[in-house]
């Protein structure tokens, strides 16, 4: 086991760069999410890691071992990786136990160990009672667990997961996420997880690679990704929030305190920097028309959505900029509210 290194990895399909010079150093034992909208090249990247796709350029290494270059590569069957497919890819003609045991048949293991390893793997995912069933008799979540057991049975160096929760309902996703987290803690294997669902990526991974149109746009921890997005695209892609134009300030700064409101003052004509403002950093208060106006920033309520624990309020400022806020109670549509912005992140131009 060792560090997994992607060095300028590229893939070109019929002259279209699908993956464009991606470089990542993935430390051993980390849980990495490849996150991006469909068609961003994340699945192709994963398939290059597995060896199902050849590289058009760059190099792929596991520690000192070169896995693949554009000219030569180690074939998937020799890489000691595990993979969980979106469709589970369980072999319908084999029982659960046979499915899980199949990777062992291609490795030299002592004869007595086979059954023990299969049982251990099934125990881990709590599928022991179903060992003699066939995949078609299992539910979606159970199938996913079997697929997980199949890739853990050989103690792989790297486990690849291709949108493993895409076919499950919301309730099951939460419990499967828990299984993945437990699996990762137990095995300590490096896990690479492809998803288009940012919430999934944030809750599972300790490092996230955000991809857009084949390029790597940000490589950071979930917290950094949320609070310090590198581009406007990432800011809009991750979490909820509004992009506001305001007074020019240095890029990539977290701004807090009283001064934040002043950045967006309507009389400020030199609005040249873009800021990300999260809805939890927007406080609103209904303005009583009979009282004298003291607030510097105001906005009109356009619409609101009830989200259970709070209301999501959509606002428009006098200069037509729109933003979002959270509020514990409903506010009348069309009402004017005063704004207090507590935090903003200045984006790179």
């Amino acid at each position: 086991m060792a560090e997994l290194i992607l060095n300028q990895v590229s893939k070109v399909f019929e002259q279209n760069p699908v993956v464009d010079q991606i470089s990542l150093n993935i430390p051993q034992g980390s849980f990495v999410a490849l996150l991006g909208p469909s068609g961003c090249g994340k699945t192709t990247t994963l398939r290059m890691l597995a060896g199902f796709e050849t590289l058009s350029g760059g190099e792929l290494r596991l520690g000192h071992q070169t896995l693949a270059t554009a000219k030569a590569q180690i074939s998937p069957e020799d890489r000691n990786m595990g993979m969980v497919f979106q469709s589970y890819a369980l072999w319908p003609h084999m029982t659960v136990a046979e499915n899980v045991g199949y990777p062992l048949k291609h490795r030299r293991i002592p004869s007595g160990m086979y059954q023990k390893k299969v049982n251990d793997a099934l125990e881990t995912v709590e599928m022991m009672p179903y060992a003699q069933r066939y995949p078609q008799d299992l539910s979606g979540g159970q199938r996913q667990r079997v697929a997980l057991a199949r890739c853990l049975v050989t103690d792989p160096d790297v486990v690849l997961l291709d949108e493993p929760l895409a076919n499950l309902d919301r309730h099951l996703r939460a419990s499967m996420e828990e299984s993945f987290r437990a699996f990762h803690q137990r095995t300590g294997a490096t896990m690479i997880y492809v998803t288009h669902d940012q919430a999934e990526a944030m809750s599972l991974a300790n490092q996230i690679a955000v991809m857009e149109k084949g390029r790597l746009v940000q490589w950071s921890s979930p917290e950094a990704l949320y609070h310090q997005p590198k581009t406007q695209w990432v800011a809009e892609f991750i979490g909820q929030g509004s992009i506001l134009m305001g007074q020019k300030v240095p890029e990539n700064q977290t701004l807090t305190g009283e001064g934040v409101n002043a950045l967006f003052h309507p009389t400020n004509e030199r609005a040249q920097s873009a800021f990300l403002v999260r809805p939890q950093h927007v406080q609103i208060e209904l303005i009583n028309a009979s009282l004298p106006q003291s607030a510097t920033l105001t906005a009109r309520v356009i619409s609101q959505v009830y989200r259970g624990e709070r209301y999501e309020i959509h606002l428009e400022m006098p200069n037509q900029q729109r933003l979002q806020a959270f509020h514990p109670v409903a506010v009348p549509i069309g009402a004017t509210v005063s704004l207090n912005l507590t935090q903003a992140w200045s984006l790179a131009a």
């Binding site: 069957e77 993979m83 497919f85 469709s87 072999w91």
Partner: peptide
């Protein structure tokens, strides 16, 4: 589903074994 065979490949099965087993 092509991933059925890919799953066998990543499990370490050679092309001829994949043909026979899967």
């Amino acid at each position: 589903d092509p991933s059925l065979e890919e799953a066998a490949q990543i499990a370490g099965a050679s092309p001829s074994r994949r043909l026979i087993d899967i």
